[in-house]
Each structure stands twice: as structure tokens, then as C-alpha cells.
């Protein structure tokens, strides 16, 4: 009641009842690169009329509409679900993968995280293994090849298995689910000073290592996925933990320790059995 009354007075006086809804003006610095091989550069775009309620991608849509109206080429960027589950969006915002919010993908980042008048730097993921295709879009197929190298389980086809046939302890289930939350966005690579994809590889290896279905190929999987990771030209892990802070799914570096354990056991078992 009281709040309504206050809002009414504010409206009568001509003030916005929600002061945070004032449109904002930002100065964007965006990486523009025409093709894979063309040299790119940062281009500055002043942009106003940004609502704090907009997501970062909606703000880029807004920029692109402005550019199209001016007859300029819009900024290319990857996106799909826009609800934080597909891992398509990939923006380095002010030097942080997926921007300043923790546990948030770029598409779920809202403009209220910025202040009116801010300068915002937007760059693509930078890694030899993620070449820029155009502007902010990168080729992340290296991740697909790592998955193909070992991120699968062999199962019999046929009727759906009985739900309770394979009991799994709650702790294992939870740990597997935590790792399985990885959406393959590549923020861990982007944030890592070594451009290492160890958190991604670890999430996939550890997710399957917790479950009975993942056991048959477990030893080979750690070797195969680490091998493919290295072949793609990612760096090595120096336990800096920057990936964990950048990950929109907050995957823990604990899974990297699990990957290392699986690597050791598979190495030792190769010696013993070989």
C-alpha cells in the first residue's frame, strides 16, 4: 500500500517509480574481424537506450539493429538457447569469460551488472584451438573431437532398462550430476592463462567415472581424451583455478583431480597389464 502510494506520488511528480529502469548509455569496444584470416581490431560503438533489464545478448541485438539501420555489417556472435543451457554464447566481457557475474553464461548476464557510462570490452575466446570465424564467433569444434575421442559409453540397445536395476549411491549421483552440468561453452579455456581445456575434459571424464555405466571404458577414456586435448593445441593445467571461477556451471577443479587420478591409474594399469 505504502509503496504504491509512493510510486503514485513519484509518477505525479514525473519521476520514474523504478529508478533502476533508466535507460543506460554505454561505450562498447567490440572485436571486429571479417574472416578467419583477416586481421581484426577493436571498434568503439557508443550505444544508448539500453535497459538494465536486457540481457547482454539483447543489448548486442540492439547494437546490431542500430548498425543495420546505418547500413553497417552487424556483429557476429554465437547464441542459441539464451537460457544458459546450450553453451553457444561465448563472450569475453571486460576481460572475464561470460562477464562479471559468477555462475552465469553471457546470455543470462543482465545489463544491470553494468553502470551507466561504463566502457565495456567485448572479445572472442582466445585460444589457438578456438580460431575466430568472424567477429566474436569462434570455431569450438575441438571440443567435439575431444568428446568423440572418449566421452561416450558403450550400452546395449533395446528396451528401456528398469529404473531401479542399477542402484547408484546419492553421493556418486550428485558428483556425476555436478560434472554433467558442463555445457561445453569453453569459458574455462578462455579464462585460463594457459588456454587449457582441462576443466572441460575433467568434467566429461569425471562425470562418467562416477557412474557404473562409465566403468568399462574408464581407463582408456582418460588417456584418449587427454591425448586429443593435447593434439588440439590446448595448454597444460597449472592449477591456477581461474577456470572454476569463470565456469557458468561452477564446475569444481576437484574434477581435475579426479581426471589426474584416472590418468595415474590408467598409466599404472598399462604398466602392470602390459
Amino acid at each position: 500500500m505504502e509503496r504504491e502510494a509512493a510510486a503514485e506520488t513519484a509518477a505525479v511528480q514525473g519521476a520514474d517509480p523504478h529508478p533502476t529502469h533508466h535507460p543506460m548509455k554505454l561505450t562498447l569496444h567490440v572485436w571486429r574481424q571479417k574472416t578467419r584470416t583477416a586481421p581484426g581490431e577493436m571498434v568503439t560503438y557508443p550505444l544508448d537506450g539500453i535497459s538494465p533489464e536486457q540481457s547482454f545478448l539483447e543489448m548486442l541485438d540492439h547494437l546490431n539493429e542500430t548498425l543495420i539501420r546505418r547500413g553497417e555489417e552487424p556483429v557476429a556472435f554465437d547464441h542459441d538457447c539464451r537460457e544458459g543451457i546450450c553453451g553457444s554464447c561465448a563472450l569475453m566481457i571486460n576481460g572475464l569469460a561470460h562477464g562479471p557475474e559468477r555462475g552465469t553464461a553471457s546470455c543470462q548476464l543482465h545489463m544491470r551488472s553494468f553502470r551507466d557510462g561504463d566502457h565495456v570490452y567485448v572479445e572472442p575466446w582466445r585460444a589457438a584451438a578456438f580460431p575466430v570465424v568472424k567477429d566474436l564467433a569462434t570455431d569450438r569444434s575441438a571440443f567435439d573431437r575431444i568428446i568423440a575421442a572418449g566421452g561416450f559409453v558403450g550400452v546395449n540397445t533395446g528396451g528401456a532398462p528398469d529404473g531401479n536395476a542399477l542402484p547408484i549411491a546419492k553421493v556418486d549421483q550428485d558428483r556425476a550430476m555436478d560434472a554433467a552440468a558442463c555445457i561445453g561453452c569453453g569459458a574455462c579455456v578462455a579464462a585460463c592463462p594457459n588456454a587449457s581445456a582441462m576443466l572441460f575434459v575433467a568434467a566429461k571424464v569425471s562425470h562418467l567415472a562416477q557412474l557404473p555405466q562409465g566403468q568399462p571404458e574408464r581407463r582408456e577414456r582418460a588417456q584418449a581424451m587427454v591425448g586429443q586435448h593435447d593434439r588440439e593445441g590446448f595448454g597444460h593445467c597449472t592449477n591456477i583455478n581461474e577456470c572454476q571461477a569463470a565456469c557458468p556451471k561452477e564446475i569444481s577443479v576437484e574434477h581435475i583431480a579426479q581426471l589426474n587420478r584416472d590418468y595415474v591409474t590408467s598409466t599404472v594399469s598399462a604398466v602392470v597389464k602390459g
Partner: peptide
């Protein structure tokens, strides 16, 4: 060699 092009603007959180 894993990051041939550096970021223009880089920040760190945990390192």
C-alpha cells in the same frame, strides 16, 4: 603457443 593472440583487456578472479 596455445594463445597466440592475447586479450586486449584481461582480468583475473582467482589466479
Amino acid at each position: 603457443a596455445a594463445r597466440p593472440v592475447p586479450y586486449r583487456y584481461h582480468a583475473t578472479v582467482r589466479a
